[in-house]
C-alpha cells in the first residue's frame, strides 16, 4: 500500500514570487496551491490555507470524512515541477480506496487547468 505519490508536471503558471536583496520574501508557487485548494474545496474537502514550506514549496492539509491528506507543490523550472501527495490518516490498516479517490480528484483538477501539462506519476488504481 502506498502512502505517498510523486506527480511531475510542466507549469505555465506565472511566477508569483516576491524577492528582496536577501532572497525570496514569498517563495513561488502559492498561486498553484490556491488553484488546487479551490478545486478540492469544490469537491467537498476541507483545505487549509497554503502553508509556506520555504525552499521546499507550498503545502496543503486536507481532510474529508475524518480522512487526512497532504500535498506539497515544489516549483523548480517550467519543465520540472513536483506535486507530492500523501495519505496521512493514522491507521493500522490505511484505506487505499479513499486515497485512490483523493488522487482521482486531484488528477481531475490538474486535468481541468491548462496551466498544468505533461502530468505524470498518478498510479493506476488497483
Amino acid at each position: 500500500m502506498s502512502r505517498y505519490v510523486k506527480i511531475e508536471f510542466h507549469s505555465a503558471f506565472a511566477d508569483d514570487s516576491v524577492e528582496d536583496d536577501a532572497g525570496f520574501v514569498q517563495w513561488p508557487g502559492r498561486n498553484v496551491v490556491e488553484v488546487l485548494k479551490a478545486g478540492l474545496e469544490a469537491r467537498g474537502y476541507e483545505v487549509s490555507d497554503p502553508i509556506d514550506a520555504q525552499e521546499s514549496g507550498w503545502e496543503l492539509d486536507i481532510s474529508r470524512n475524518k480522512k487526512r491528506f497532504w500535498l506539497k507543490v515544489s516549483l523548480i523550472a517550467s519543465d520540472e515541477n513536483y506535486l507530492n501527495a500523501g495519505h496521512m490518516t493514522w491507521s493500522l490498516w490505511p484505506d487505499q480506496k479513499v486515497f485512490d479517490a483523493f488522487l482521482a480528484d486531484l488528477k481531475a483538477i490538474l486535468g481541468a487547468d491548462g496551466r498544468f501539462s505533461r502530468v505524470s506519476g498518478f498510479p493506476t488504481p488497483a
Binding site: 510523486k6 514570487s17 524577492e19 513561488p28 525552499e55 515544489s74 523548480i76 523550472a77 507530492n84
Partner: peptide
Amino acid sequence: PQFYGTKVIRGEGWSGKR
C-alpha cells in the same frame, strides 16, 4: 526523498536531479 529542488532566484532553479 520528498525534496527535489527549489527556485534559487527569480527565473532560475536548483534541481538535485539535474
